[in-house]
Design a protein around this nucleic acid. Structure first.
Lengths: 181, 181
DNA sequence: CGATGCATGTAAGCTGTTACATGATTGC
DNA sequence: GCAATCATGTAACAGCTTACATGCATCG
């Protein structure tokens, strides 16, 4: 069986968690989830789910009671197995270290900016990180440990990492303002 | 001027930090950097740098003393400006929240695995995170604050985030082993 | 003198984005 | 009745990966 991409695995997982559901709701779930923000455009999700259906990982059933022609998705037995394989394949050296942070990437080249532009950039990024943290904290608070534990634990990780990134940015700002003097 | 992609910005930044350098060394730098792990295959880096050259952001000069036909890259004035714009554009809401962690993504769907498979997965991932942390800690230690401050601060962020992810995974493991009983 | 690393690139293919296109349903 | 949302998709394009292809330099 073919190896699933990240977006394919996540989409299959979303179907698994919310079935029966429509392709549209999968897309919305990916877009709205504040903790792992995929673009999940229509041009990717629909062909992707069609691909998974062609491979027998999901099955669709037309909902005749709906005039919009919605088609309800379910994960097949094959699909459940493929999801398990995808998860276990996530325990991979390369995948674990492949988390690229656009803020951190820019840090390495910050010296090309003037000192004032540097602090302008840092202040902006810190402000954005702060409001992002508020957003995902609210998301975490909305998730009870007793409702869906895995959802809660995932959101918990998102908050922890975002807090760490913010703390780090504050250290950077402090350190750079010291050098300036 | 066109908006640069993440890989384009990073590549331009690497040239800026190490100039004069070859396209090959840019590729190697991206591949070997443990803190922000791009694949940076030949098929992406060479066309990318050719693109940047065509737009006048980098300039190449043939090194006649080298039989391999190496071409040395430099950032032009236009390129330096484009790099500055790219960095400032990084202070963006969407970009900041776009950090997707493959380990965290999988957490939301972990319930499809049996309890024993769940702990097998977590143990594997934790072991990998531990050795990854050792690797980037060594990288951080190799970077002096007085040598290149920005390099040091970037690596510091990578270590902080990796440590947080590991701590989170340990919390998850503990929490799930409790539920099992 | 052979393996590894340096150095440059191309071709095919997959994945994802942006923008477009259509129509039904629901809430105000 | 009108706007927002639900719902499905297509077409053109951009970007990156994998695999291929070539040849020089350096070290043991």
């Amino acid at each position: 069986m073919r190896k699933l991409s990240e977006l394919e695995g996540v989409s299959l997982g979303v179907v698994s968690n919310y079935q029966p559901c429509t392709a549209y709701s999968v897309r919305r779930e990916l877009r709205n989830s504040p903790s792992s923000h995929w673009q999940a455009s229509a041009g990717s999700v629909y062909p992707l789910l069609a691909r998974l259906e062609a491979e027998g990982l999901v099955a669709t059933k037309a909902d005749k009671s709906d005039g919009r022609g919605r088609r309800l998705l379910r994960v097949t037995a094959r699909g459940r197995k493929a999801l398990k394989v995808w998860i276990m394949n996530g325990a991979d050296e390369v995948l674990i270290s492949s988390v690229t942070d656009p803020v951190r990437s820019r840090m390495f080249f910050l010296s090309v900016l003037s000192a004032s532009k540097q602090s302008e950039y840092l202040n902006k990024v810190i402000a954005l990180m702060e409001s992002y943290l508020v957003e995902i904290r609210a998301d975490l608070d909305s998730k009870s440990q007793h409702d869906d534990l895995y959802d809660y634990l995932g959101a918990l990780g998102a908050v922890a990492v975002a807090q760490t990134r913010l703390d780090w940015l504050r250290v950077v700002r402090k350190r750079l303002s010291k050098t300036e003097k």
